[in-house]
Write a protein that binds this DNA or RNA. Structure first.
Lengths: 231, 231
DNA sequence: TGGTTGATTATGCGTCTGTATAGTCTGGGA
DNA sequence: TCCCAGACTATACAGACGCATAATCAACCA
C-alpha cells in the first residue's frame, strides 16, 4: 500500500478540468479518491463505474486498479477516509459548542457521501452511523435536562431516529431543493436549511396532550395488512 | 399497452391484498408488480434485475416484458400504483385526524418503496414527495397556530425538511434497526418507533434562546472549504 | 551506464443485464 | 372441428461493466 506521495516532477499531470478551487496538482491516487467520493455521493455506488471515476480523475481505469485493488476496495478506502475526516471535524465541533454546527452536520461536504453510503448499505459505514448516533445522544442529554417531563423512550432510540432524520435531508436533496426553490447545497439553500432546522428543532411539532392520546391509543390499534416477504 | 385485465379462466383477480395476507393466486401481471415493489423497495432499482423479479413472481423474464414494456416502464407502473394507493390511504387518514397515523406515515408498507424511489431519483415520484410535503404543510399549519412566536422560515420550506426527515427513517432502516436492537419493521420495532417519534415531535430539541443565538451567528460565519464539482 | 522499481496505459476476457425474437401452449368462439 | 388471440417460455444478441494482463515510460540508484 503506497502512501500519499508527491508525484515525481511529472509535468503532464495537467489535462484535468480543475483550476479554480483547491489543487489539481494532487497525486493521481488522491485525484482518484476525490473523484470517487464525488461520484459515489452523487450517483451512488452501483451507478458509478470505474471508467467514469477514472475519466473524472484524468487517469486510465487500469491505474485505479493499480492503486486501489478493486471497486469495492476503493469504496472501503473512501469510507475510511471519510471516517477520519468526520472524526477530525467532530473534534473541532466539540471545542465550539455552537448548535448551528451540529444542526447542519449532514450538510457538510462529506454529508452527501455518508448519506449515500448509508442508504446504499455500504458494509463499512455502519460505525459512522453509530458514532453519529452517539453524538446525537450526547446532544439529547442536554436537551433532556431542560425538559419538565421524563422521556418515555430510551435516549439512544430517540437519538438513532433523530440521526436518521437528519441524514434524510441530504439524501433527498433533489426533492428538498425543488421545494426550496433553490439548490440546498448552494449558499442560499444552505443558509435557508440551517435557519429552518433551527426553527424546527426549537419548537414542538405536536402538542404533548395530542401525543399522549396518540401514544395511549396506539397500543391497542390493530391495523393494516402485511405484505409477503421475498423468500 | 394492456391494462389490468381480468384473465379469462382464472377464478379471481380480486382487488387483492386488502385483507390480511395476500394470496398467491394472483394474476401473473399482478404477481410481477408485487414482486417488483418488494425488490425495488428492498434492493433499489439498479440492484434489482428483471430476472430476479421474474423468479420471485414465478414467471419467465419474457413474460415481464410481455406485460410491461421494459424495466423502466415497470418502474413507472409501480410508481403510479403506489401513487394511487397513497392517495387512497390519505383519504382515510384525513377522515380520522389522529396524529399517530400521520406520524407513522413513512412506516407503512409503501413507505419503504417510496423512500427507496425518492432516494433512487425515480423520475416519476417527485409528485409523491410534493404531495407528502403538502400533507405535512397542512399539519404544520395546526402546529403553528399553537405557537407563541411567529415562525421565521416559510412554512413550505419547513414542511419539506420535516418530510425529508420522516422519510430518512425507513431509508436507513438497517442502521436504525441496529440501534434499536430490533427490526424497525417488526411489530415491536414499529411500536417503538411510533412512540419515540411521538416523544420527539412533542418536545423541542434545542432551546429557543440557543437557536436564536445560533441563527444570529450563522449569517456571519464563513466556514469550511468547498469541494470541486464534477463537470 | 545499466537495471530495477513503480506509475501508467492499452487491450482483451468473462460475466451479467436489458432487450429482442421466435416458438409453445391453452381456451373460447364460429 | 378449426383456429386464432393472448399468455407464457426458451434462447439469443449486443452492450456495459469489473477485472486481469502485458507492455510502455519515467525516475532513481549502484
Amino acid at each position: 500500500m503506497t502512501t500519499e506521495r508527491t508525484p515525481p516532477p511529472t509535468p503532464a499531470d495537467r489535462p484535468i478540468k480543475e483550476r479554480s478551487v483547491a489543487f489539481e496538482d494532487l497525486t493521481a491516487r488522491a485525484r482518484i479518491r476525490e473523484a470517487a467520493l464525488e461520484h459515489f455521493a452523487r450517483d451512488g455506488y452501483d451507478r458509478t463505474t470505474i471508467r467514469a471515476i477514472a475519466k473524472t480523475a484524468g487517469v486510465s481505469p487500469g491505474l485505479l486498479r493499480h492503486h486501489y485493488g478493486s471497486k469495492e476496495d476503493l469504496r472501503e478506502a473512501c469510507d475510511h477516509y471519510v471516517f477520519e475526516m468526520i472524526h477530525r471535524a467532530n473534534a473541532e465541533i466539540l471545542s465550539d459548542p455552537g448548535a448551528a454546527a451540529e444542526v447542519q452536520e449532514t450538510s457538510k461536504p462529506f454529508g452527501r457521501y455518508v448519506a449515500r453510503s448509508l442508504a446504499d448499505d455500504s458494509p463499512t459505514v455502519g460505525p459512522i452511523f453509530d458514532e453519529l448516533v452517539t453524538m446525537t445522544e450526547a446532544w439529547l442529554t442536554r436537551a433532556d435536562d431542560s425538559r419538565p417531563d421524563t422521556p418515555t423512550v430510551d435516549r439512544r432510540v430517540r437519538a438513532a431516529l433523530v440521526t436518521a432524520m437528519k441524514i434524510g435531508i441530504p439524501l433527498l436533496h433533489e426533492h428538498v431543493s425543488r421545494a426550496l426553490g433553490t439548490d440546498m447545497f448552494g449558499p442560499d439553500g444552505e443558509r435557508l436549511v440551517a435557519l429552518a432546522l433551527l426553527d424546527i428543532y426549537s419548537h414542538a411539532l405536536i402538542g404533548q396532550d395530542v401525543a399522549a392520546v396518540a401514544a395511549a391509543g396506539y397500543n391497542e390499534a390493530q391495523h393494516q395488512y402485511r405484505r409477503r416477504a421475498i423468500p
